[in-house]
Design a protein around this nucleic acid. Structure first.
Length: 469
DNA sequence: TGAAATGTTGGGGCG
DNA sequence: ACGCCCCAACATTTC
């Protein structure tokens, strides 16, 4: 009897244990479905929705056009599809983010009432969130011990794509309805910030993911140093593919298991992704609530002037070249180099005195790899509010970061064209330098970094005092 | 996966 | 030869 395979964050055919389970249970007869859930899509950012749309076209191609796309609530849609196909079993890869967990529990219960079994198999992670525990059986709140236990977990070998499957074919709505349903909920502080359709997204879909991985392999050995320089292509660029599961981290680890310092550091970055998923599993509220009680009442600005500052930051017009370069890269490509993400986040929290949630929201709006666990905890790390986060008083100096990580100004010149006529070290300075030939067209710095650093530390002291008194 | 302030040390110039 | 000072380089502390 035909089974249903519900695609979610695992948009691939290779190394997909849940899909293999669906094929086995259906004796080769499977109805592959992706559901456009208006409720969920409404708060998905436009960049990621567009990326997902392209990925779905690629998935449909690799299924010979058989991907069934339906619009509606997952429970009703799956029940209807079960009636059409006669299926009584549905398979999906388990989801571990708070909203997905809630949805999956509801859908599973509703389908069970109709005699349909929804099976959850595998996870988007090498090690399923919640399984890594210390010797005392408690989850690890600190990354380094987490990684030590994580590394001890067995890594199953990647499995091939299913063969000899007869894909069920049925009616679909247009994949491109994604663009209409997505990005409906805009926070007020975005104002009229427009969305720039990202360019240069790189190879799309499952085949694209493997192309990206292959292209990265020669660079793995140098990853430990190269990954910090935004001006060179030293990172894997796999994040959007891991986000949508066009490749599984198992497959990535299997290909990068060398013993160079570079591959060790790269595996560690995979471990960070899994650590954050694990933290979210144990603390679903950490999506929007700080994990450090001491910083719950850190004073942040929310008035009109603060909203204006937020938008200057989002547009990449702060006058701090490396921050602006990163923010413009984000808008133009839907992706930002991690080194610059950390700097931009530090700047929003420590120099602009804004709520990290605003920044996290903007990143989720623009990022093609935007993932609740990694994004929110990355922000909590930068804001000093997370578990095992950077202490609040670690404040990035935008100029020093530029001197260290973009010493020639290559990255700045790519994204801040106004500064192309200005060479390093001038182009690394606020406003692009204070030489006689001040760069035409570039903005003057929106603030004095020294002054705002002191202000951030004062607010930090204030929050700590309020906590202890 | 901070930065800045403060402290320590040791080489070398100099009287 | 010796003490003194300067200061770069590095280490530690503080925010």
């Amino acid at each position: 009897m035909t089974t249903i395979f519900w695609f979610r964050r695992d948009l691939r055919l290779r190394d997909n244990p849940a899909l293999l389970a669906a094929v086995a249970a259906g004796h080769g007869q499977v109805a592959p479905v992706f559901i456009l859930d208006p409720e969920l899509l409404a708060s998905v950012g436009p960049a990621r929705a567009d990326y997902l749309r392209r990925t779905l076209h690629s998935l449909r191609d690799s299924l010979d056009g058989a991907l069934v796309v339906r619009e509606g609530s997952p429970g009703d849609t799956l029940a209807a599809l079960a009636r059409e196909t006669g299926a009584t079993e549905i398979f999906a890869t388990a989801d571990f983010a708070p909203r997905g967990r809630r949805r999956d529990e509801d859908v599973q219960a509703n389908l069970a009432a109709e005699g349909i079994t929804l099976h959850f198999v595998d996870s988007p992670y090498v090690v399923t969130p919640g399984t890594v525990v210390t010797k005392t059986g408690t989850p690890s709140k600190v990354f380094t011990p987490f990684r030590r236990y994580w590394e001890l977990e067995p890594v199953p070998a990647p499995q091939p794509a299913p063969e000899g499957v007869t894909w069920w074919r049925g009616e679909s709505v247009a994949i491109d309805r994604m663009l209409i349903l997505a990005a409906q909920r805009r926070p007020h502080y975005f104002g009229d910030l427009d969305w720039v359709a990202p360019e240069g997204l790189g190879p799309i879909g499952e085949a694209g993911a493997h192309d990206v991985l292959q292209a990265f392999l020669p660079a793995v050995a140098a990853y430990d140093e190269a990954r910090n320089i935004p001006g060179i292509s030293g990172t894997s660029r796999l994040s959007p593919h891991l986000r949508f599961g066009t490749i599984h981290p198992r497959q990535v680890l299997a290909a990068t298991n060398g013993d160079s310092r570079g591959s060790e550091v790269f595996r560690s970055e995979i471990a960070w992704r899994e650590f954050y998923a694990d933290v979210l599993w144990h603390n679903p509220e950490s999506t929007w609530r700080v994990l450090q009680p001491a910083l719950e009442h850190l004073r942040v600005d929310t008035d009109d002037a603060a909203i204006e500052r937020f938008q200057v930051w989002a547009r990449g017009e702060t006058g701090f070249p490396l921050v602006d370069a990163g923010m413009r890269q984000l808008r133009a490509t839907g992706w930002m180099h991690n080194r610059v993400r950390m700097l931009a986040a530090s700047f929003l929290v420590k120099h602009l005195h804004l709520d990290w949630r605003w920044g996290a929201k903007w990143f989720m709006w623009c990022l093609i790899d935007g993932d609740v666990a990694s994004n929110q905890h990355g922000w909590q790390w930068a804001a000093g509010t997370g578990t095992d986060a950077s202490p609040f008083h670690r404040i990035f100096n935008p100029t020093l970061q530029a001197e260290r990580f973009d010493p020639t100004g290559a990255f700045i010149h790519t994204w801040v064209p106004e500064l192309r006529g200005v060479t390093a070290p001038d182009c690394l300075q606020p406003g692009g330098g204070s030489g006689l030939l001040a760069p035409a067209g570039y903005v003057t710095p929106m603030l004095d970094a020294q002054v705002e650093r002191d202000e951030a530390l004062a607010r930090f002291a204030e929050a700590r005092e309020a906590r202890t008194s």
